[in-house]
Nucleic acid binder design. Structure first.
Lengths: 109, 109
DNA sequence: GTCATGGTTCCATAATAGTTGAACCATCCT
DNA sequence: AGGATGGTTCAACTATTATGGAACCATGAC
């Protein structure tokens, strides 16, 4: 049984490359993805970089990432666990996540 | 000497990953990049997929790609030659272009 | 049950991005 | 010089996206 509070996630075959690229094209979202690359985090744990980000805003950033197929958002007690859909994305778009996570974010110098 | 009609291009060190990802996140722009992956094209040659795209619109798409650091736009007689900044991007963001160009664009099935 | 916690959703507003005709500009050709 | 060609820029409009407070919803603790 799926809990009512589960949020919809696209099947990996339905994930569009351009949507993934768009989701990753925002600095705040990319930072979240970088954090999740080290393992799942709850909402509260995630986004340590932006400590004073309103929760509705953070929730919206997560929604964009989730609907693009980049992250999973699973209920766990009264928290939610965010995780990068890494293995699925690696199959769908080989090398993409690796290159993005390995790349510099800011201009050099 | 640089001709007056040259357009500004960011130095590769100043190119931001998020700007590149954003530029690639639009289907029309991504299609242009795919075409340019096979070699430089003039404006008129490029965008064969969208034959009835107004030229101002196409010019704007190119501007986004150019300002993000993805393509070069060099005057050549009364035409302009568009080219992918491939080797520069490969150095700045190893593997990124390869994975994007190699990936499927549309959902499977 | 009540309450605090952790989070989503709704709504209104602000900001950014896309579209396109018209005007413009430079080049080549005669 | 004039005209056609290939393209950029401008301006106005539309559309999409971001932001964040307030309301709401589950869960766990008591």
């Amino acid at each position: 049984m799926t809990a009512i509070t589960s949020l919809p996630h696209p099947a990996i075959e339905d994930v569009r490359l351009t949507d993934v690229l768009f989701a990753l094209s925002d600095p705040a979202r990319l930072e979240i993805v970088r954090e999740l690359a080290d393992g799942p985090l709850s909402m509260a744990e995630c986004g340590a970089t932006n400590p004073d980000l309103p929760k509705s805003t953070k929730s919206h950033l997560m929604k964009v990432l989730r609907e693009a197929g980049v992250v999973r958002n699973e209920p766990d007690g009264r928290r939610r666990v965010l995780s990068l859909r890494r293995s699925e994305l690696d199959e769908a778009f080989p090398g993409l996540l690796e290159s993005v996570l390995g790349a510099r974010t800011d201009p050099v110098g």
